[in-house]
Design a protein around this nucleic acid. Structure first.
Length: 563
RNA sequence: GUCCCCAUCGUCUAGCCUGGCCCAGGACACCGGCCUUUCACGCCGGCAACGCGGGUUCGAAUCCCGCUGGGGACGCCA
């Protein structure tokens, strides 16, 4: 484990040499590679930095070859690479903005970060990016925390930081960083209004260029004393490095000319996302930024910021988007894809973890794996580069797999809320119920479905499905049914074996097949045409409840016949 | 509009870097059969893909170019 002081040390070191040079790479790569050479930002240096990381990983040469071979086939890249040497150095983070429930895409990003860190024996941290005060809420934070814990993704504390770091609590640090940038000339004050900037964008668009800020205030040298409201922008320098070797996407980036002087701090002095992430990722010692593809185009800006601040950038890995069955981007607002909604539909955490991981990540033909196996097998090279659609088919299959194989204790604890909802009250564990649940495993694709099927046992308030009743509760079966009922009532012992005997007696007397009598009984006692074997179902229900329901069914046949 | 990216069965994917083992493998879904007191489970079998066009090569899903299609980003949001 890293010494508790490591984050703080790196932090202070860099602040002293905040621009242009620095006395050592900021990240933990330093510890891995052991270099302490002064560093300036040139493209050669950056490449060297990548090389160092590659070497520290263990096969620098192959990494360089890959970079040279272009962006395709980033995956075979680190195949067979021993991650031993990565241990102790990896720090990943999941940094959601708490503006809604955790949806499946966010959960996957969190999962990948977590799995990558755990695989490497590293650290996984959580951070709330709540600089957008208007949209961030504590409720959303709770939702995210709850979803993460439900999935079993644990996170580590960061020395020197709050238990769960929030950007809103680090405003001073950002402000101070902006001051530094202003002082060194890496950033400047801009008094253009939002409307003016909008007009510039329009003009650029009209001229067939990428919408951007035109640099009006760039060389005005506006000081702190201006009485107009101002925001702070980064002075994007020619020759700035905006390309990187993405661990998933391969050789990535765009020309600096495509990046405009973007805003670092708002008119009210609060920081913009780019500034906050870069400062935080650096201060927290993040070594690998694994995030959604939608952040891909903002990476060049952040790279530029790293340079302006004299920080060594982390490694980046951009995970392809998750899309709706149609192929469109998964709407974050869509509540139906939140982790909680999957939980409420009756899927177990094991199911979701397995399902989510399989969306975009693969390890040969492996379909079913536990959290532990995922940690053992996970690698970024196993992550694909194209978007995946979220379909329920495989989810349902996986769900049933886990329902079939989970230990009873675990199954019951997961199923309990669903069972109680059907029962309309508390449902304690007892042998009969557990026996029923065992019989229902093969018939349930979700806990909700399982509870529905168990309803006949949980409550006496059952309703007969009209269709099933019409088909099986017919006048011609009334007589055999009544005889069976009386035989059952007279049974000395209510056991599966004895029940079977009674059925056979009735069957022979009336020359009907088992199915012809079993189905009516089934409908009578469970309300529908589907249930576990009729004898075990009767045995489970018990004599009293069974007879009562059969009586009700016979009566029903009578009244129906009169109609 | 401008930049960037992606492209194997309906879906999730293996294979692509290091061309031949791939007339492309697995899984889900679907279809058929078996089992059977219902519903399921299970077992067996089947359908089904390298987007298109050029090149390179003895040989291309794999390498190169173009096209088409799809997506993402272009905020004083994150």
């Amino acid at each position: 484990m890293k010494a508790p002081g490591a984050f703080v040390d790196a932090f202070q070191l860099d602040r002293k040499s905040a621009h242009g040079t620095l006395s050592g790479p900021a990240g933990p790569e330093t510890h891995a590679s052991g270099t302490e050479k002064p560093r300036t930002w040139t493209s050669k240096r950056l490449m060297a930095c990548g090389l160092e990381v590659g070497l520290s990983i263990g096969r620098g040469a192959s990494l360089v070859n890959r970079a040279a071979s272009g962006r395709r086939h980033a995956r075979g890249r680190e195949k067979g690479l021993g991650l031993e040497s990565l241990r102790m150095s990896v720090v990943t983070r999941y940094a959601p903005s708490p503006t809604g429930a955790l949806h499946i895409g966010g959960a996957r990003t969190a999962l990948f970060n977590w799995a990558f860190a755990r695989h490497a024996g590293g650290t996984f941290v959580l951070r709330f990016e709540d600089t957008d005060r208007a949209r961030s809420t504590r409720e959303s934070e709770e939702d995210v925390l709850e979803a993460l814990s439900w999935l079993g993704l644990d996170y580590d504390p960061v020395p020197g930081f709050a238990e769960i770091p929030r950007q809103s609590e680090r405003l001073d640090r950002y402000r101070e960083t902006v001051e530094t940038l202003l002082r060194t000339g890496a950033a400047y004050r801009c008094t253009c209004t939002v409307e003016e900037v909008e007009a510039m964008r329009e003009a650029a668009r009209a001229a067939g260029r990428k919408p951007s800020y035109d640099g009006t205030c760039r060389d005005k040298g506006i000081g702190a004393e201006v009485d107009l409201p101002f925001c702070v922008r980064l002075r994007v320098i020619e020759g700035g490095l905006t390309r990187w070797e993405d661990l998933i996407a391969g050789n990535s980036g765009e020309d600096v000319s495509q990046v405009d002087d973007f805003v670092l701090a708002r008119t009210d002095g609060t920081p913009i996302y780019h500034l906050a992430v870069v400062v935080d990722d650096h201060d927290m010692g993040i070594t690998h930024v694994i995030r959604g593809r939608e952040h891909m185009t903002s990476t060049p800006r952040q790279l530029l910021l790293y340079q302006a601040l004299g920080f060594a950038p982390p490694q980046f890995a951009h995970v392809p988007l998750l899309v709706e069955p149609g192929g469109k981007k998964l709407s974050k607002r869509h509540a139906s894809v939140s982790v909680q909604s999957y939980r409420d539909r009756g899927f177990t955490p094991e199911t979701m973890l397995n399902f989510i991981a399989r969306l975009g990540w693969g390890h040969s033909d492996l379909e079913i794996f536990s959290k532990e196996e995922l940690v053992k097998l996970f690698s970024l090279t196993g992550v694909g580069r194209s978007p995946s659609q979220v379909h329920d088919d495989k989810l349902l299959w996986l769900s049933q797999h886990y329902i079939k194989t989970l230990p009873m204790g675990t199954l019951f604890s997961y199923a309990r809320p669903f069972l109680e909802a059907e029962a309309g009250g508390p449902v304690p564990a007892e042998p009969g119920l557990e026996r029923l649940l065992d019989l229902l495993r093969e018939r349930s694709k979700s806990l909700a479905e399982m509870a529905r099927l168990a309803r006949f046992y949980l409550t006496d308030a059952i309703e007969l499905e009209p269709k099933a009743a019409r088909k099986h509760l017919t006048p011609r079966i009334a007589q055999p049914l009544q005889e069976l009922r009386d035989a059952l009532a007279a049974l000395p012992k209510w056991s599966e074996e004895a029940l079977k005997q009674s059925f056979h007696v009735a069957l022979e007397r009336h020359a009907v097949k088992l199915a012809e009598l079993a189905q009516p009984v089934r409908v009578a006692i469970v309300g529908g045409a589907a249930s576990p074997g009729i004898f075990e179902t009767l045995e489970l229900l018990g004599r009293e409840r069974s007879l009562k329901r059969i009586d009700a069914a016979i009566e029903r046949i009578g009244t129906d016949a009169e109609d």
